[in-house]
């Protein structure tokens, strides 16, 4: 299964749009990336930058009435997903590609026990018996370390805490040994101690099963502690991509730099006097996606911007060692320390 060469998932020049009363929302505006087998890829950016729409596009869950993949290609194991029928997608989803979301209640069925839901997924995709499906459900609840798993099989989602529901979602998502798990803000709704438990669990299971993870989050701390490679998005575009160490060691895009300086940090020594140094603000607001953006989407907020930035979209260039950045002024940015 994993011996095959090449990335497991290849997204190329993806454009996903919605028609709204205000015009066409260019939610994803030309995004490309690969996911290697067994890796953890982070996608990070502020709300509205297109992270969830990217995930929904891969899973082909964009609401048909208003949205569509306007162009681009998504290949899973070399197979083009954008042209698959809904039937064919259903066979993939929850089996070879699976997903977990921020709010597990929206993806769990409130009237079925968690055991039944996991078993159903296994029976449907792997064609095993109900008994084997139940057994698999039990194994999975054990795997995600739900205490008293036999009894929990017969409980309904509302009987579980938020953290336990997220464990059930993970159990269900991994029940058919997927090659890719897409996790969209999986810990955002959880308390910090529970978030730490869930992140640890995901990484541990990834190491055990070899499932590649696409971890979508707005939280730079979560990205830093759990992923291997990171894609930074801004206004529907990929502005930077790098191995996680390189990204945090030397962010190259002015937006990424701005983000890292804007967050209060726990790992930097607070000064003894208890003074509160000013956080660096990123001035202005994210652009409105209903208007086509010429040039660099970050230009109105960027202190490095030139006329070229306002008129020509910067291409992604390799700044060395797999560190890609879409910025015309990267040399100046680098020198600015």
């Amino acid at each position: 299964m994993s011996g095959a060469p090449g990335p497991i998932l290849e997204v190329r020049d993806l454009h996903t749009q919605f028609s709204t009363l205000d015009g066409v929302v260019r939610a994803v505006d030309g995004v490309s990336f690969d996911v290697a087998r067994g890796e953890t890829l982070g996608i990070v950016g502020e709300s509205g930058c297109g992270k969830s729409v990217t995930a929904m596009s891969i899973l082909r869950l964009i609401p048909r009435e208003t949205g569509r993949i306007a162009s681009g290609s998504i290949k899973f194991e070399g197979e083009e997903l954008t042209s698959l029928s809904e039937e064919e997608m259903k066979r993939l989803r929850g089996h070879r590609i699976s997903m977990i979301f921020q709010e597990p209640m929206t993806s769990l069925n409130p009237v079925l026990t968690v055991g039944t839901q996991i078993a159903e997924n296994v029976v449907r995709h792997l064609g095993v018996s109900w008994k084997q499906g139940r057994e698999r459900a039990f194994e999975m609840l054990d795997l995600v370390r739900i205490a008293d798993s036999r009894r929990r099989l017969d409980e309904y989602p509302h009987q579980l805490s938020g953290g336990m529901r997220q464990r059930v979602m993970i159990a269900m998502a991994l029940s058919c040994d997927p090659q890719v798990l897409i996790a969209d803000e999986p810990t955002t709704a959880l308390d910090v101690t529970i978030q730490a438990q869930i992140l640890d669990l995901m990484i541990e299971l990834k190491e055990k099963t070899g499932t590649a993870i696409v971890l979508i989050t707005h939280d730079l701390g979560v990205v830093a502690e759990t992923t291997e490679r990171v894609v930074v998005m801004y206004a529907g575009r990929k502005v930077e991509q790098a191995p996680v160490e390189a990204l945090f060691e030397e962010p190259l895009h002015p937006y990424t730099r701005g983000l890292m300086r804007a967050i209060p940090r726990l790992d930097v020594e607070a000064d003894a006097a208890g003074t509160r140094p000013r956080l660096q603000e990123i001035p202005g607001l994210v652009p409105i996606l209903t208007q086509p953006i010429v040039g660099c989407a970050f230009a109105p907020r960027c202190s490095f911007a030139t006329d070229r930035c306002r008129n020509e979209r910067p291409p992604l260039v390799d700044a060395g060692a797999g560190h890609l950045v879409a910025c015309w002024e990267v040399d100046r940015v680098r020198r600015a320390a």
Binding site: V192, A196, G221, V222, A224, E225
Partner: peptide, 16 residues
């Protein structure tokens, strides 16, 4: 709480 908090520093991973 302190050990569960994440920080934007990959070198801290696995320290929790």
């Amino acid at each position: 709480l302190l050990s569960a908090a994440t920080a934007p520093d990959p070198k801290r991973r696995r320290q929790r």
